[in-house]
């Protein structure tokens, strides 16, 4: 079982503030997720068994030609707030 402190550390990395109920909830849920990873660790992935797909030069690279995307405005429309053609976010305070 994940400790309360471990959950709080993960929450901090994810910039989340959790209630007491949520801490208890994530202790259980994250423990289950990690348990699944434990299961995956049993899969045989020695060097011989693990062969990464190695494509040839032609398929792994792109020639350096610029082609502007046709609909950048469409991407902006996904944003909750826009100002001066920029994504507007709440003021960022440098995290320390």
């Amino acid at each position: 079982m994940l400790s309360r402190e471990e959950v709080l550390k993960i929450a901090k990395l994810a910039r989340l503030t959790l209630t007491e109920d949520e801490i208890a909830f994530y202790q259980k849920q994250l423990t289950r997720v990690l348990g699944h990873i434990q299961d995956l660790n049993q899969v045989q992935t020695s060097k011989e068994a693990f062969v990464q797909h190695v494509p040839n030069d032609a398929e792994s690279f792109r020639e350096d030609r610029a082609a502007p995307f046709a609909n950048p405005e469409g991407l902006m429309r996904n944003a909750p707030a826009v100002e001066n053609d920029s994504f507007l976010l709440p003021t960022i305070v440098e995290h320390s």
Partner: peptide
């Protein structure tokens, strides 16, 4: 380069904000 590292957006300084963007470099 003419284009960005992983997409075909122009690698260009001084364009209007958010004009050299596409689904790849905006993380869609």
């Amino acid at each position: 380069t003419q284009s960005k590292m992983f997409c075909r957006c122009p690698n260009q300084f001084g364009s209007s904000p958010n004009t050299n963007v596409c689904p790849v470099c905006t993380g869609q």
